[in-house]
Design a protein around this nucleic acid. Structure first.
Length: 268
DNA sequence: CGTTGTGTTGAT
DNA sequence: TCAACACAACGG
């Protein structure tokens, strides 16, 4: 009898080793995950699937040792949007926070939620007051055939910064309008014209809101419950306000309270 | 009670 | 730094 190979299926007391780094067998057949830092072991939880455990180790390795860390699986390539978002997500949380998500099996969900709300986080940790992000005057070309909306540079860089690695490809952002409808728009930087633009999804917005040159589009950020969201809606050119300008329901807060401010004064 | 994950040791 | 092993601590 030679038990040198793997298939030692008889009741051996020996636990089966994992082929994955950071993954250790548990007595009940599940898999534990650990990573070491400064002579200390950091426990990353237990998992039923060996491969899931291996991926958990990979996440921790990226957070603890940077994106050149040795991992079990090769993650997506450098210039990939998802990969970039994940790096952003990792670097914006402490090691303890990441470990906590991994142990509670909530990492994936939280990452996905963060992707959906890109630009909602970060700049302001504002609790519940809507934060105005500015208004953009709709120009003739914005409602023309170019299918894009230029966001004034100063406003863009202040409220919606794009990082160089992702600027050209842009990022998908979700906005809600006053009726609660969600608009999914691509936002990117056009280096040729050195401007920040909303591209994919914009023309649909123009059409449905019946936007004309001279109208305004306003943006704001607020929290619904505890999760931040982005909002946008059109404001018809001044004059007899009709349309949806009455009130904006947002958990009792009337957002557009003082925004009846007349912009035409400085327009002409 | 079953399971987790810590204490510990010995390799690389 | 790492996995292997034993088993105390943990939590439903």
């Amino acid at each position: 009898m030679d038990d040198s190979e793997y298939g030692n299926e008889v009741e051996s007391k020996r636990l089966p080793s994992s082929k994955y780094k950071g993954v250790v067998p548990q007595p009940n057949g599940r898999w534990g995950v650990q990573i070491y830092e400064k002579h200390r072991r950091v426990w990353l939880g237990t998992f039923t699937e060996e491969e899931e455990a291996a991926r958990v180790y990979d996440i921790a390795a990226l957070r603890f040792r940077g994106h050149n860390a040795i991992t079990n699986f090769n993650v997506s390539f450098e210039n990939d949007e998802d990969y970039y978002m994940e790096k952003l997500f990792l670097s914006s949380h402490s090691k303890a926070e990441i470990v906590d998500m991994l142990r509670k099996h909530t990492y994936r969900a939280e990452l996905e939620e963060r992707k959906q709300n890109y630009a909602c986080h970060g700049i302001s940790g504002n609790a519940f007051n809507p934060e105005p992000l500015g208004e953009s005057l709709v120009t003739p070309s914005d409602v023309g055939k170019l299918n894009r909306m230029v966001i004034p540079k100063q406003q863009a860089e202040k409220h919606f910064p794009l990082y160089t690695e992702i600027a050209s490809k842009g990022v998908l952002m979700n906005f809600e309008d006053n009726s609660g409808k969600v608009w999914r728009l691509r936002y990117c930087y056009w280096s040729s014209s050195q401007s920040y633009v909303l591209t994919k999804g914009w023309s649909r917005f123009v059409k449905e809101k019946n936007l004309k040159a001279g109208d305004l589009v306003c943006f704001w950020r607020s929290n619904v419950g505890s999760n931040p969201r982005l909002f946008m809606d059109s404001k018809p050119r001044n004059g007899s306000g009709f349309e949806t300008m009455g009130e904006v329901r947002l958990f009792g807060v009337n957002i557009l309270d003082e925004s009846n401010r007349d912009y035409a004064a400085n327009n002409r």
